[in-house]
Design a protein around this nucleic acid. Structure first.
Length: 671
DNA sequence: AGCACGCCGACT
DNA sequence: GTCGGCGTGCTC
């Protein structure tokens, strides 16, 4: 093929679904050298003068191309191939699978260009290349592969080496790093595996749900891997830092760590993808097309044939399904490490102070033993896990018991601090002269008790003991090993040096009262994650919950629970036994979209049901095998809708109407 | 998104 | 006659 016959297949950087396909451009002679796959380009679109940004996805021969005359590429923005070919295929596949646009995925995959950072990086590369040219062999990583502990000799290492897919049961205990700090053992396990990849000159990607996890992982890596081997990519970084990390991942094998969108990071010779704690809701991408980290990781593994590790202290029902299909293989610790779990009923304690703090006797005694050492146990901090943040998040009328509502907007009233004036959770208005709608009474009673309140009562019970509160708003990463009462909302538990001497899970009953499909799974995860913060042999006390769920937690058989849960979902034809897609929007648009799908590829259609603001929602239910065709049909309807329906002229008001059609596949919170 | 094209109502 | 409304469609 002749050089002049080459065309650039460009993906236009635009949110418009109707532009979500290749546009072919001629490569002018003067750009021949720079026009490489993955580079950012500027291209004319429609009329001369209108210039769009885009990426060259591929270079192709002119034969099968567009049968009009090709416009030339306007310019190559920079020579850096920011869109690696495998990331492009991943974006395309993931978008198609979820009836979205590749651009929506690219927005997560490729950070905005930072010219200064990029120039510095290019200069550095140039310098390195000159050096290499002057007879220095490119340096391969020069560290030995570290051994993973706790899983049997080379069991994990070999599985990763052979690029297998694994469901890894993490070890529920803490580990101390050489610098004296403490992290979850899981962080050491994953850091060790990733460093193993890197020592073989391969990249590893590790996606964790939140920043607290990311910090633990980064700390564990610091102890094992050279700093230059690690690229941390997260949204909280400044744009230049983020771009620096991105370019670093592009430069050679790295251990790339970050939150959910790190699954799309560029990676030289990708050896392994790890998803830590895949049932954490933070792995569900809130931006269209709402692709879960787990699903993106599965697609990427299939494309690149690297190792894939779903690791967690508990197993998600989704991963359990993959295990039962034989798609992933279970790996458990060599010796079971079981937190010492005690179940106790919610009967009030004899001690008045304990009763005020609504802590049953067993739990109370464990806490007291840890704080005072009165049983001869080692003294140390006690973790108290509660369901809700705040002081008294929900208030009711003291006389008739009706929930207290804002007199202005009917929002729920709550109290943020002892003695504070209650305020509305919706409009924020202070309820200064509140009266009950029902009985006109004007005094409140607390219905749920938040972390702050519990802390206050416990503090009174143990004079002289420090009370520490960690919740979503003010979360602490660590506490020392000094005796202290640490009241934390689920997910915000600090790590105690050496582990907690007792862990009290207080609000299990309330956590279980939520009406979602995933309550049981969520509770197991919250409890297990807290129990893993206990010191060896220290008790974890689950208050007021009994039954199969509590038993599987107490016996450490959480994956067995995932199995029964999956069996139930199969019987009900609920996800993840089947797949769902929700279609939300104006009634006619939703109907049109649903009609575009061949009924033969669906199990059924639920709805349409009203879904707020004059919109409706229909839910399509289908088997995994039909995913391809359902997504294709929905995507076609979505594109058609975007071209046919114009946004109502904004007029003078400036109000933008909601998008007329929203499509979401596999929404974890749908039922 | 923008912008052109095109097919019907009010106008010098 | 034709100026211009915005519904419809296209962008390599």
């Amino acid at each position: 093929m002749v050089a002049a016959g080459r065309v650039a297949r460009v993906v236009i950087d635009s949110a418009l679904p109707q532009l979500d396909h290749f546009f072919d451009y001629r490569i002018p002679d003067e750009l021949e050298a720079e026009a490489r796959p993955g580079v950012r380009v500027k291209v004319p679109l429609r009329t001369a003068g209108r210039i769009a940004d885009g990426y060259i996805a591929e270079i192709a021969a002119d034969d099968d191309a567009f049968d009009g005359s090709l416009s030339p590429i306007e310019s190559v923005v920079s020579p850096v191939p920011v869109l690696a070919p495998e990331v492009w295929s991943l974006a395309r596949r993931v978008a198609d699978r979820s009836a979205g646009t590749a651009n929506d995925i690219l927005r997560l995959a490729v950070p905005g260009r930072q010219v200064r950072v990029e120039k510095a990086w290019l200069a550095e590369r140039e310098a390195a290349a000159v050096k290499a040219g002057s007879k220095v062999t490119p340096t391969a990583p020069s560290i030995a592969e570290p051994a993973v502990r706790g899983y049997g000799k080379r069991v994990l290492e070999d599985a990763v080496l052979q690029h297998e897919r694994l469901a890894l049961d993490a070890i529920p205990r803490l580990a101390q790093l050489p610098d004296g700090s403490w992290v979850g053992e899981w962080a050491v396990t994953l850091a060790t595996l990733a460093t193993g990849c890197w020592s073989r000159d391969e990249s590893a990607i590790i996606a964790v749900p939140d920043y607290r996890d990311l910090d633990q992982l980064a700390a564990a890596l610091t102890a094992i891997a050279p700093a230059a081997a690690v690229a941390r990519v997260d949204a909280a970084q400044s744009n230049p830092d983020r771009y620096r990390a991105f370019l670093s991942a592009l430069s050679g094998p790295r251990i790339v760590i970050g939150n959910r969108s790190v699954v799309y990071a560029p990676a030289t010779r990708l050896g392994m993808i790890v998803v830590w704690d895949d049932s954490d809701p933070l792995h569900a991408e809130p931006l269209s097309p709402y692709v879960h980290t787990r699903d993106a990781a599965l697609v990427r593994q299939e494309l690149q044939k690297c190792a894939l590790v779903f690791a967690g202290l508990t197993r998600s029902v989704e991963v359990q399904r993959l295990v039962e299909l034989g798609w992933v293989t279970e790996v458990s610790p060599e010796r079971a490490v079981l937190p010492k779990v005690v179940l106790t009923a919610n009967q009030p304690a004899a001690e008045p102070v304990a009763r005020a703090a609504r802590i049953p006797s067993t739990a109370w005694q464990a806490a007291r033993a840890a704080l005072t050492g009165d049983r001869g146990d080692p003294r140390g901090p006690v973790l108290i896990q509660v369901a809700r943040p705040g002081y008294a998040p929900v208030l009711a009328c003291a006389k008739c018991g009706q929930a207290a509502r804002c007199n202005r907007c009917d929002g729920p009233l709550g109290q943020s601090r002892a003695g504070a004036t209650p305020s509305c959770g919706w409009c924020g208005a202070l309820a200064t002269d509140w009266h009950c709608d029902n009985c006109e009474h004007d005094r409140f009673r607390m219905v749920t008790v938040g972390a702050g309140r519990t802390a206050e009562e416990l503090g009174r019970a143990f004079p002289g003991v420090r009370v520490i509160v960690s919740d979503g708003e003010h979360s602490l990463q660590t506490v020392t090993d000094a005796p202290a009462i640490v009241v934390a909302t689920r997910g915000a538990e600090p790590i105690a040096a050496g582990g907690y001497r007792a862990v009290l899970l207080l609000d299990g009953e309330r956590m279980l009262a939520r009406e979602t499909l995933r309550v049981a799974e969520d509770c197991l995860r919250w409890w297990s994650n807290a129990a893993a913060l206990a010191a060896p042999g220290a008790p974890t006390i689950l208050v007021g919950v009994s039954g199969a769920l509590a038993r599987s937690f107490a016996t450490g058989r959480t994956s067995e629970y995932a199995r029964t849960e999956l069996a139930d979902r199969r019987a009900l034809r609920f996800p993840p036994a089947v797949r769902l897609a929700s279609i939300t929007g104006a009634a006619d648009v939703v109907a049109e979209t649903v009609d575009a799908v061949d009924p033969g590829s669906l199990i059924d259609v639920l709805g349409p049901a009203p879904h707020g603001d004059g919109q409706v929602r229909s839910i399509l239910r289908f088997e995994y095998a039909k995913g391809q065709e359902v997504a294709a049909a929905v995507r076609a309807a979505y594109v058609r809708n975007a071209t046919r329906r114009r946004r109502a002229p904004a007029g003078k008001s400036g109000f933008r109407p909601a998008p007329s059609l929203r499509v979401r596949f596999d929404d974890p919170d749908i039922l």
